[in-house]
């Protein structure tokens, strides 16, 4: 069927996707790319699977990847899911991975002889949430372009827009999947980091609705994007839409509402003392106002509908 290159192979979602693709006999070859040494969860190198260590922020290494193994293997589709995971890190190097490498990758695959399709895994956090905006988020919803937004968000918005600007201009067919939050480690999920504490604080008087995507559904959505011929931007919601307090409860954590102004210092203090990755400033609006992805377009064009609920107890443990 196809030959696929997957970046971000060592992320939780990247690993799950690779395992799924490897199990499909009609995927001829998978070229997995990660910056770390091969994780044990990935299959060994074979005539169907190759793992390559590559620092995508290095232009030379990326060029060697695209015009080396990717050309030799005749790759058809690139799934780009490499994003810096830590919300605490900032700076040029982080920007280089989140944005510049995407730009460079798009530039290189334009000249590649066999790559026909580019699938970019974006995130729902690119959307702006506010009291006067719809709770139901369509693909045309305003993006978080505020200059006050943290780099973690700004990079994701810029990366997303970098890909979107090539849509229709490039010879490569492009799909952007704006995925709801995936509750798993190693994907940069802020909700996951939030739920790692035994006590979860939230602003008193607010209990927004949050949509969560399960790993099997995220993998299915990417699979659909690989095989469909359409291009465009698609929201990928999950099966589970529930209030924040209910998420905390399902996770077996203690939910404590506090006055909003106390939360920023409380979480900053916790980050400094315990070292958790959760940043309240990143989630400020999300913890006040509901934002649920509208998956109508994905249903109509990609034939994707969420089917798998999050296994709360299993995921929490």
């Amino acid at each position: 069927m196809t030959r696929v290159l997957v970046t971000g192979a060592t992320t939780g979602i990247g690993t799950a996707l690779l395992q799924r693709l490897f199990a499909r006999p009609n995927v001829e070859h998978i070229l997995a790319v990660g910056i770390e040494e091969r994780p044990s969860a990935l299959p060994p190198d074979s005539d169907r699977f190759t793992y390559v260590v590559c620092d995508l922020t290095r232009s030379r290494q990326m060029r060697q990847l695209i015009f080396g193994p990717a050309r030799t293997l005749g790759i058809h589709v690139v799934v780009h899911s490499a994003l810096h995971r830590s919300a605490l890190d900032t700076g040029k190097h982080i920007h280089a991975l989140n944005v510049e490498c995407t730009r460079e990758l798009l530039r290189l695959i334009e000249r590649h002889p066999t790559i026909e399709r580019f699938v970019y895994r974006s995130v729902a956090e690119v959307y702006r949430l506010d009291h006067d905006l719809p709770n139901l988020i369509g693909e045309d919803h305003p993006l978080e372009l505020s200059s006050r937004a943290p780099q973690w968000v700004r990079d994701r918005v810029e990366g997303d827009l970098t890909v979107c600007t090539q849509m229709g201009m490039s010879s490569v067919s492009i799909v952007v999947l704006r995925c709801a939050e995936i509750l798993m480690p190693e994907v940069g999920s802020q909700l996951w980091d939030y739920l790692r504490s035994a006590v979860c604080l939230r602003p008193i008087g607010f209990d927004p609705m949050i949509n969560v995507l399960s790993v099997p559904d995220a993998v299915r959505a990417i699979e659909r994007a690989l095989t469909c011929r359409v291009q465009g931007v698609f929201n990928i919601p999950g099966c589970d839409t529930l209030p924040l307090s209910r998420i905390t409860k399902n996770w077996g954590r203690r939910d404590i509402p506090l006055p909003g102004p106390l939360l920023s210092p409380a979480y900053r203090l916790r980050t400094r003392t315990i070292g958790t990755e959760f940043r309240y400033d990143l989630n400020l609006t999300r913890f006040h106002f509901s934002g649920v992805l509208d998956g109508t377009r994905a249903r109509d064009k990609l034939h994707y509908e969420p089917q798998h609920s999050v296994q709360w107890r299993k995921a929490a443990s």
């Binding site: 009291h131 006067d132 905006l133 719809p134 709770n135 139901l136 369509g138 919803h141 602003p203 008193i204 008087g205 607010f206 209990d207 609705m209 006040h288 106002f289 509901s290 509208d294």
Partner: peptide, 26 residues
């Protein structure tokens, strides 16, 4: 009205009993 979700407790309560922000997409 668009200001309602900004009210602590009120916005959350209205959502639980079926209130919805009056935007076109909603």
């Amino acid at each position: 009205d668009v200001f309602v979700p900004r009210f602590p407790f009120v916005g959350a309560f209205f959502a639980r009993v079926g209130g919805v922000g009056g935007t076109r997409r909603n």
